[in-house]
Design a binder for these strands. Structure first.
Length: 118
RNA sequence: GGAGUUGGUCAGGCGAUCGCUGUGCGCAAGCAUGGAGGAAAGUCCGGGCUCCACAGGGCAGGGUGCCAGGUAACACCUGGGGGGCGUGAGCCCACGGAAAGUGCAACAGAAAGGAAACCGCCACAGCGACCCCGGUUGCUGUGGUAAGGGUGAAAAGGUGCGGUAAGAGCGCACCGCGCGGCUGGCAACAGGCGUGGCGAUGGUAAACCCCACUCGGAGCAAGACCAAAUAGGAAUCCAUAGCUGCGGCCCGCAGUGGAUUCGGGUAGGUCGCUACAGGCAGGCGGCGACGCCUGUCGCAGAUGAAUGAUCGUCCACGACAGAACCCGGCUUACGACGAACUCUUUUU
């Protein structure tokens, strides 16, 4: 039985944590609308960070929507594999997708990322 | 029915599952409960709050600009006045001063500001022409003339009658304008009376400017507190042994040590942080904005940043859009609903 919760320990909490990922990207998954970067964190769980640039998604409502969906997908994933720090970045145009489509894309990219790492 | 004007209300509902976050209770697991907007937006005004600056006054610079009121305050709101638009309900107005000074106005036009005769009109003079012999007319000159033509966004009060050689505020009537009382109004202003013939007061002040009133600066990353590690500082105490330098060596001198305390202060953390110019209901005062009183409610507080996802169901099939110290406005974006009023068409 998986734990679907999303507590603070599962998030990247400060600039330093983000910096570590950016400085040592081990795996990446690229898509027209988003980009995933990841590096192992030597913990027993994954951690997630989301970046949505104002430049790419103009409206705050749309930025929030993107983050929520990414988190939603994240907490439904299997967390048994060795811990990864993952950053999900939005690209221009994501705000044109509906929730369903966006969820599917994020899920696919996530599988790709975990698969290539394993 | 159509077209329109004004002022309002709501912002998908319910259920299930999985989450996020504040608070309360609990050792904990957990349980209970609260959790975006009318614009949260643009950051354009006004305040509160915080720190800095500040005797008083002036200059510079900015803002506001019909009057009265409301307010913590405003550039907002209410009521009133004036002007403009609309058949109307209604709407719009940067609405002080051009008789302090400086400046600006393309082109056109004769002339554009103490104006100007291009054409025209009129008088007189000279030289002609014609004839019915004192009239008509042509040219030139000297004057008069702002009525007409023409230019312009604008040509110096307007219209009419009189008047005149032709004209002209030259005279008169009405309208407009200036000045002085009077009446009404807190006032802006309105009405009416008298008076001036109006060669002075043209326009532009979102041109400089003048006048009146008004304004200190920065902003919650404000600011307050706690406070590591490391480096450096001050004081006290201990050790003055060893090492380094000066020196041939000794003495000596300078530097280097340990402990404790203190102050500054970085990372990090806590506070500021949501309870108030508060919402709702009723009463009273006021045309109203609003004020006063009583009752009642507790209504986000995050900090990589929560308020969501999926499914079911109902309907009018859901627009614009996401708090970041807090309020009051303005502006912009936008879906739906009902109300009052106006104009118009058709029918009875």
């Amino acid at each position: 039985m998986n734990d679907y919760s999303f507590p603070r320990k599962d998030r990247l909490l400060d600039a330093a944590a983000y910096g570590r990922v950016f400085d040592a990207v081990e795996v990446r998954a690229s898509h027209k609308y988003l980009l995933l970067l990841a590096t192992s964190n030597h913990l027993d769980h994954h951690r997630l960070g989301v970046i949505v640039a104002r430049k790419n998604v103009k409206h705050a409502v749309q930025r929030n929507r993107f983050k929520r969906i990414v988190r939603e997908v994240f907490r439904h994933q299997d967390h048994k594999s060795p811990g990864l720090d993952v950053i999900v970045m939005a690209r221009k145009g994501v705000d044109t997708l509906d929730n369903q489509t966006l969820s599917t894309i994020v899920r696919q990219q996530w599988q790709k990322l975990v698969g290539s790492e394993a």
